[in-house]
Design a protein around this nucleic acid. Structure first.
Lengths: 201, 201
DNA sequence: GTCTATAAAGCGATAGAC
DNA sequence: GTCTATCGCTTTATAGAC
């Protein structure tokens, strides 16, 4: 009911975007447990109480960051849908995209064990909607690729899907980059190849 | 300089073993950050101050658990060396062993980001000795398998090694088991196959 | 060496003034 | 809505009696 709601809304939206972007980066850098709310507010340059007017808990911060990355993943999926590629080639492109995001420090990493975080995520409609949308999109490509003999049909589609999700946070990338012996592009190439063709020749 | 040192030593050794076994299980179950020292002492049935007479920090607890699992891995490697198998078959057997350990809740999971933990581990001679021994053993098999054309020679041996270490904590196993749709043995088979042959047919 | 009790510090979350 | 200041809880680690 304010006199000039749109200006105010835009300002608040921009601030929320800045918060989520910072959270995204910190989650990619140190993970959920190691990231503190104090770090986030210091990075954004606001007071902690102000942050808690936008997000009611640390878990909701992580959920917002996940919504952001899922939106970008869905954008990439939509872009790939417009290209003339086989289903397997599209899945490979998605995997490559995920590795490149991780290489750029843009892939938030969440612990799979934390129960309160899981509860917040599963209760977040925005997150669950996007997660299911992405799973459906990739699942269709997986089944299609298996039918075309480009993906092992003996593997359950869910296992392929979970494997792709897991490889998006593959710790091997960080270790290989830390060794400093190879270029980022070379590492990504190897990881994509290992994911789809394995370690065998 | 006690009057009956051997009895006392044996008792203390048994208590330390009980502590490390509990830590190993808790690390496999909830990870380093979520595991609290209070949980450990409650599980073992001793007072917290008593635990700190054996181990001077939570990080050292994790290091002791890692030494334990590395010892078991080295035992498995020694066992495999006695069998008539190709280098690639031995690596595959090691991967299978690691997945089975994880399935049994015996594979401790450490965060790769925690810096104080990393500092303790790299400063722990018992841990570093075993880690380097295992890396050398597996590295020899990797180079051998690549020379025999059973492993992709285009991949740097270090990438293969890190991949095997990473798959030992592969989160895909936990998600697949949670779905409850497949047997443990079937899941392990799929994961080993995916690791070496990839998602492609 | 083991215990009870407590110190010391970090962190998530909030109260209340503006 | 934003700020400062602080609460309340958890957790690691230790002091001191036995």
């Amino acid at each position: 009911m304010s006199a000039r709601p749109r200006f105010r809304e835009q300002f608040l939206q921009a601030r929320e975007d800045a918060i989520v972007e910072s959270v995204n980066r910190l989650l990619a850098e140190k993970g959920f447990e190691a990231m503190t709310v104090d770090e986030v507010v210091a990075d954004v340059g606001i007071a902690k109480a102000s942050l808690y007017k936008h997000f009611t808990s640390k878990e909701e911060l992580a959920a917002a960051a996940m919504v952001r990355v899922l939106d970008r993943a869905l954008e990439e999926v939509a872009r790939l849908r417009g290209l003339e590629l086989s289903a397997a080639a599209r899945l490979q492109a998605v995997a490559r995209w995920a590795y490149e995001q991780q290489m750029a420090g843009q892939m938030p990493a969440l612990p799979s064990q934390n129960s309160t975080l899981r509860a917040t995520l599963t209760g977040d409609k925005a997150y669950m909607d996007r997660l299911m949308q992405l799973s459906d999109d990739l699942g269709a490509w997986i089944v299609q690729a298996q039918g075309q003999g480009e993906l092992n049909p003996a593997l359950p589609p869910e296992l392929v899907l979970y494997t792709l999700f897991a490889r998006a946070c593959d710790p091997v990338l960080g270790v290989m980059r830390a060794s400093g012996a190879h270029t980022d592009a070379q590492i990504v190439d190897w990881l994509v190849a290992t994911c789809f063709k394995g370690l065998a020749p």
